[in-house]
Design a protein around this nucleic acid. Sequence first.
DNA 1: CAACTCGTGGCAACCGTTTGCCGGACGGCG
DNA 2: CGCCGTCCGGCAAACGGTTGCCACGAGTTG
Lengths: 360, 360
Amino acid sequence: MEEKPARQARTQPTIYDVALACGVAPSTVSRAFSRPGRVNAETAERIRTVAAELGYRTNPLARALPTGKTDLLALVIADATNPFFFEIIRGAEEAASEGGYTMLVVDAQESVEAERQALNRTLPLVEGLVLATSRMSDSAIRVAAKQRPTVVLNRVVTDLPSVVTDNPRGMRRAVEHLAELGHTTLTYVAGPEASWVDGMRWRSMREAAFELDIKVRRLGPFAPTLAGGLAAAEKLRQQPSSAAIAYNDLVAIGMMRGLARMGARLPEDVSVVGFDNIFGSDFCTPPLTTVAAPLRRLGSFAVRALLDQMATRAPVLVRPALLPAQLVVRGSTTRKVRRSSAWVSASRATAGRTDPSGTA
Amino acid sequence: MEEKPARQARTQPTIYDVALACGVAPSTVSRAFSRPGRVNAETAERIRTVAAELGYRTNPLARALPTGKTDLLALVIADATNPFFFEIIRGAEEAASEGGYTMLVVDAQESVEAERQALNRTLPLVEGLVLATSRMSDSAIRVAAKQRPTVVLNRVVTDLPSVVTDNPRGMRRAVEHLAELGHTTLTYVAGPEASWVDGMRWRSMREAAFELDIKVRRLGPFAPTLAGGLAAAEKLRQQPSSAAIAYNDLVAIGMMRGLARMGARLPEDVSVVGFDNIFGSDFCTPPLTTVAAPLRRLGSFAVRALLDQMATRAPVLVRPALLPAQLVVRGSTTRKVRRSSAWVSASRATAGRTDPSGTA
DNA sequence: CAACTCGTGGCAACCGTTTGCCGGACGGCG
DNA sequence: CGCCGTCCGGCAAACGGTTGCCACGAGTTG
């Protein structure tokens, strides 16, 4: 008659419970799961069935303590409300779970301070890091990268594995497109100054314009939001242009709304090109011509690169990975019309008319 | 001359390192941080400065093992690409970090199986659970709730704390609105059958319509996506209606695109009302009249309820919490016009004209 | 038949905290 | 002066796995 006191049923069974029930040592149970082949096939089988009966589940916390294997990855995004990130999250999530990892999505709330804090909190928990559109300084990123394998997304940090959209090519295509439509002066509607991507796009635009013998101007900076785009519309009214390339789709859409509100007809009065092809860019009015980023691939690619790096214990990506962008032509761009921007003066006259966007 | 071997500088310093440097016991160091007041103020101060010098950071894994305190919460969402969740995530994140917790955002990818797996993976790590628009069965949810404090979001599960939008009132307002505009027959464009919310909305609509002496019809089910809305447009053409209330904004927007493509004029030919007021519903064409859910509050409220529940070790929410919805009237609804749905036949005639949505 | 190898299982240390318990010092009080 | 309560620090046992090392038996080989 055995009288080993049964463990509290209240708590999860442990390897000790399984070991007891099988008449083997705890270490054998452990190995039956973590090191298949290390124990006799029959024994392992027996252990596994008993474990299943008992409802044993290995405790990830206990496992992580001695080994450091948490099976957790962190994806830090600049702003959880920005639709730009949603397909990226999905892509990252897919690649992570394919590799047996769980994604920790961390929202930096567009604040360097919040990003730093959130990072500190999660860093010790995770095995690797994807920093998407980080607002932190290069050096802060390097500090993080020193502690955990890191991949930078949508930004390039020297000597750190980076994954970005091919902005120069994408911008080149956009400028060509507008040039073909007869536009001779292009306005860049800038995003936040802290943004690496903004600098990149502006530079690429100037280069492309130079080669194609097109004039460029720059407005901004503006917040990378619909509101930012609204503000940009105001500025654009003061310095009209037949065509504008916006920092991103959010700004482009916001700007188009602002322009429409002022009485501009789109795309006749202003051709607008956005960047990223986010959710909504196909059903705004007019549908937005945009340089589409391969969002989902961006996410999955970054995670796979991270996983590779973790596996080989050495950076795999020495050069920044450039994922191809693609110009999606929709309704927001059109041939330049001779008659120059009548809406600028007309706007005052029509200021009282019904707001076509429906919100005041 | 001491010759205690210095610990590997490679690894993070532990309480042992700090204890050694301070000449106290490790337990004292631990208490200096976790139980302030339990140790002498001076000692604690000394320990804290030395710890800071050494760059000591308490290891959350090691802490969690004996105590179970991971400071992690999980938010399981049905689909990371659905903009409905954007603001919910943000709200939840805010409330969580206010309470000193970190949010684990888990994507169920609209699949019951994926949801179950992801849940199994993360359950042992987290202290509490928010299930947002879970697609799992009530019983599966109860099983999870048995293991961790749980709050259900956007769905009601009997005897489990639930947080939902006040759908009946919101629907009532929508029906009233359309009734006032002269519509006498309303079509409900249904969402997925597995959706708790769909059932709720359909029922509420019938009740409201009954009271207001309005006739209702039901089309569907459709996927809760833009594509689902497109399919709905096709069905609506076969059974025209002067006004429709869609399962959610995604379906509403998709449907409007489909209708526009067929040559319908909106909102004159069909008035459309959506639900949720997601990102994009204000800049689609026409801007969508919708029953706005307090998305961010939904998220933060659910997390706060969860935190309360965890603190008091007992469900705090005995009744489902109803957060008020608000009808936002924009451009997609208008007074019923006498001349009945000309677009149905006209659509064939205009089939060849330029697609106003810009995509083929 | 001895020596060696291989397969398999057990022992015990370890990961870095937390915490119950103990005991010494000190101060107040009867 | 002795007793008691309080304050504070240390000891050691958890928490639940992983893993280096050893032991033992069977099979192989010279």
